[in-house]
């Protein structure tokens, strides 16, 4: 009985990812990040614009996330809610804290690993890139994949790890390497989100107005 109820709960939680809109917007943010890192490398830290870019990363991230969230809500209101219904999720503080702890532990392990082994492996691979790929991959697999039970997030996690390691061997400068990594990951997100959205729209045509009389 409880197992069945847990299945229902997980299915309801998965509803957030049913349309792929989150991945499309997330992909866009990743591509912007990619452009940011590449531009920073191209302009150099000593130029005025390069310095401004460096100082603006936090603003870019916070602003990007706020605009992204607004865009997701707007798109869901137009595409998803009229087709399959509106849901507002609870902010589960306990699970949010657990997620934060997992991210912090992974980040700490990555930092410790890089400090211990940096000297030995820095000669043949770009450590920042490899670790970024692993970190993003772990977050995608363990938090998104395990939390939602959706296989596509495990695939994205694997792509991130492989991409991070492959690009780290390319000997590209940090900025270009990170730029390429985030751009390719963003592209992967957009492909995954786009395919999911296409399937969702095919499977869920807009109901006639009479059927949309919601209750």
């Amino acid at each position: 009985m409880n197992n069945n109820l847990s299945d229902v709960e997980q299915r309801v939680k998965r509803y957030w990812y049913t349309d792929g809109i989150g991945e499309l917007i997330g992909g866009g943010i990743f591509i912007l990040l990619g452009i940011y890192f590449a531009a920073q490398q191209y302009l150099g830290e000593n130029s005025l614009v390069g310095g401004l870019l460096q100082a603006g990363l936090v603003i870019l991230l916070i602003g990007g996330m706020a605009i992204g969230r607004w865009l997701i809500k707007a798109l869901k209101s137009r595409l998803t809610y009229p087709r399959t219904g509106y849901v507002e999720y609870r902010v589960d503080r306990e699970s949010t804290n657990k997620r934060r702890i997992v991210v912090a532990v992974v980040a700490a392990l990555v930092a410790a690993f890089s400090m211990v082994f940096a000297q030995r492996i820095a000669s043949f691979l770009n450590l920042t890139l490899a670790l970024t790929g692993i970190l993003v991959g772990v977050i995608l697999s363990f938090l998104q994949g395990r939390g939602s039970g959706l296989e596509r997030f495990y695939v994205m996690g694997a792509i991130s790890i492989v991409l991070g390691i492959v690009l780290s061997l390319s000997r590209l400068p940090d900025g270009y390497g990170l730029g390429l990594f985030y751009s390719l990951m963003g592209f992967s997100f957009i492909v995954s989100g786009g395919l999911t959205l296409r399937r969702y729209l095919q499977e869920n045509p807009l109901p006639a107005e009479a059927e949309r009389q919601n209750g």
Binding site: V8, E9, V12, K13, T84, Y86, V87
Partner: peptide, 20 residues
Amino acid sequence: LIVTILSTVESADFLFLQRE
């Protein structure tokens, strides 16, 4: 089923409950 669905979310509309 209705109560279980609603326990997972803050709120849900009639259409969502009907589909689920």
